[in-house]
């Protein structure tokens, strides 16, 4: 494209054009660049940072976030949001031990809690489909589900003894930890669905411009229902993994987890206003958050400050995602219109 237009345009404008592409590139792949810079810088700052053990450790911590954030990417593609995933993780965590204590076998318990996740998500989706703001619906669900988790568990954390659940949270497949393998599978599945199927395209269309999607015959309500159901089920899967990792079912599991999930998704470049979403970005976003946290820990930074850093990263991500992104794409569009002017005029 650039080589085709290069001979026509004078050298000066070509330079501007290349500069523009550079800025666009920096904004679009800024997260990947930042991740790279952070990893390089940290590997000089701490000899432990870039070790196989530490990288696996970070990936394992990021895994449940990745699993849930893949679902969140679809929700945000439709211009929605789900604040209730952290509470759903707690409810699932508590239900896993409750069901095991009832004497149910693993092959019943796990599908059952996945079903609970799906139903909770579908409940969110049904309200959103009625036209209620997703923010409020899922905020209500956040406190409701956490409340149910406390009621069911009576506020106590109970150990999990099931081998399979523990394996899901702590086990290994060859060299890799099970949660990492699960996260990779979920991410690949999410990428395929988002970029290669009708459903992924429709989620983006609904988020981009709902009326246009409807005019083209897309069942907008069904798409919304499906994305919330999907993130609910993935939150349940994340809850199972976390329960296995922690070794107990706790109503305090997943507190503030929704923030990590949303931060990872937004950092990855998925638009808060819908219509734009990428799974690779979401995965990189989750890794970035965890690498920053891990790096600060290795440097001996006070954990309270680590929390502040996480908040600031989220703020920065939202800033990039909204204001900067819009300005830059407007700027790029103006530039493009300038270039095409001689072609479009009669």
């Amino acid at each position: 494209m650039s080589s085709a237009s290069a001979p026509k345009s004078p050298p000066a404008s070509r330079f501007v054009f290349d500069q523009r592409r550079l800025v666009l590139f920096a904004v679009r792949y800024g997260l990947f660049l930042a991740l790279g810079v952070w990893v390089v810088a940290m590997s000089f700052a701490s000899e432990h940072f870039l070790t196989w053990l530490n990288v696996l450790n970070v990936a394992r911590q990021a895994a449940p976030i990745v699993v849930i954030a893949v679902g969140m990417t679809f929700v945000m593609a439709t211009a929605g949001i789900d604040l209730s995933v952290g509470s759903l993780v707690a409810l699932v965590s508590v239900l896993v031990v409750t069901f095991f204590n009832l004497g149910l076998p693993t092959y019943v318990v796990l599908p059952a809690v996945l079903l609970v996740g799906l139903l909770a998500g579908l409940a969110n989706g049904s309200f959103v489909r009625l036209g209620l703001p997703p923010f409020v619906v899922t905020l209500a669900m956040l406190t409701t589900l956490r409340g149910i988790a406390f009621v069911v568990s009576d506020g106590y954390a109970t150990p999990v003894k099931d081998e399979f659940v523990l394996w899901l949270g702590r086990g290994q497949i060859g060299q890799l930890h099970t949660p990492i393998v699960l996260a990779v599978i979920v991410a690949i599945g999410g990428w395929v669905i988002l970029s290669k199927t009708r459903f992924g395209l429709y989620a983006l269309a609904v988020g981009g411009r709902e009326e246009a999607a409807r005019a083209m015959g897309i069942n907008v309500g069904r798409v919304k229902l499906a994305v919330y159901g999907g993130v609910g089920m993935l939150a349940a899967l994340g809850g199972i993994v976390l329960t296995g990792r922690l070794g107990n079912g706790s109503p305090n599991a997943g507190i503030m987890l929704e923030l990590d999930v949303i931060a990872a998704t937004v950092l990855g470049g998925t638009s808060l206003f819908g219509g734009v979403a990428t799974i690779a970005g979401t995965v990189a976003g989750a890794l970035f958050i965890n690498f920053v946290r891990n790096g600060l820990n290795l440097l001996g930074v006070n954990p309270f400050w680590v929390q502040v850093a996480t908040g600031l990263i989220l703020l920065l991500a939202v800033l990039l995602n909204t204001v900067v992104n819009r300005r830059v794409s407007e700027w790029a569009r103006v530039g493009k219109a300038d270039e095409q002017e001689p072609e479009t005029s009669p």
């Binding site: 395209l201 983006l204 269309a205 988020g207 981009g208 411009r209 009326e211 246009a212 999607a213 005019a215 083209m216 638009s271 819908g274 219509g275 734009v276």
Partner: peptide
Amino acid sequence: YQDFALVPEL
């Protein structure tokens, strides 16, 4: 359609 009914992001 008058407003084209296009999805800008697609």
